[in-house]
Amino acid sequence: MRVRNREFWDLVDDVFGRAYGRTLADDQVLTALGDRTAAQAVEAGVEPRVVWHALCDAMDVPDARRWGSDLFRQAPPAR
C-alpha cells in the first residue's frame, strides 16, 4: 500500500492536529530523513510512507495511533 501526499497530510492533521502537525512537519528536523523536515522530504520526493514512519518514530507515536481515527485504514510497513 502506498501513502499518497494528500493522505500523508491528512494523517498529520488527524494524529497531531492541524496547527501543531503542520508546524511539526515544517520545523522538526529528522535524522532519518537526512536531516530534513518532513515537509522538505515530501517536497523532495521521498515516499510519504517513509516520511510518515520517520515522523511517528521521532515523536514516539504508538502503532495504535499512527493511522489516525480511521479504524479501517491499513498500516503499510515501513521500509
Rank of each mutant, 00 (worst) to 15 (best):
L24P: 01
L24Q: 04
G34F: 12
R36F: 03
G34L: 13
W52T: 10
L24V: 04
V50I: 08
F16E: 02
L55E: 03
Q40C: 07
Q28E: 12
W52Y: 09
D26I: 01
V29W: 14
G17M: 05
R22I: 07
Q40K: 13
L30D: 07
A25L: 10
W52F: 06
E47P: 05
V42W: 03
W52K: 11
L30M: 12
G34D: 09
T23Y: 15
F16C: 00
R36K: 09
V46A: 00
G45W: 00
T31V: 04
V50W: 03
L33S: 10
A54M: 00
G17I: 10
V50N: 03
D57G: 09
V46G: 00
V46P: 05
T37P: 06
G34R: 13
A25Q: 14
R18D: 11
A58L: 08
C56I: 07
W52N: 11
G21P: 06
A41H: 10
A58T: 08
R18C: 13
Q40Y: 06
R49I: 05
E43I: 09
D27E: 14
G45M: 02
A41E: 05
D57V: 08
V42G: 06
R22Q: 08
A19H: 13
L24E: 08
Y20P: 05
L33G: 09
G21R: 06
V46H: 02
Q40E: 13
P48Y: 08
L55T: 06
V51K: 07
G21Q: 05
V42R: 06
F16Q: 01
H53A: 13
A19G: 04
D35W: 15
T23W: 14
G45F: 02
D27P: 10
A25H: 12
L24C: 09
G21Y: 02
V51R: 01
V29N: 10
D26W: 00
D26T: 07
A54W: 09
G17Q: 13
L33I: 04
R36V: 01
T23P: 04
G45E: 02
Q40M: 12
C56R: 08
A39C: 06
A38P: 13
F16Y: 05
G17A: 11
L33H: 11
E47K: 15
W52V: 05
Q28W: 11
E43R: 15
T23M: 15
A54I: 03
A54P: 07
R36N: 04
Q40W: 00
A32M: 01
R36H: 04
A44W: 01
A38K: 14
A41Q: 02
R36L: 01
G45H: 01
A32P: 11
W52C: 03
G34Y: 15
L55I: 09
P48D: 10
C56Q: 12
D27G: 14
L33Q: 04
G17P: 07
W52S: 04
L30P: 07
G34V: 12
L55Q: 06
T37D: 02
G45I: 00
A19Q: 11
R18K: 15
T31F: 10
C56D: 11
E47M: 11
A54S: 01
V15I: 06
R22L: 12
W52R: 11
F16W: 03
A25E: 11
E43S: 12
L33A: 09
R49W: 02
R36Q: 08
T37H: 04
A58Q: 08
A54H: 03
V42D: 05
A44C: 08
W52G: 11
V51A: 11
A38M: 10
R36P: 04
R49V: 14
R18Y: 12
L33N: 12
A44T: 02
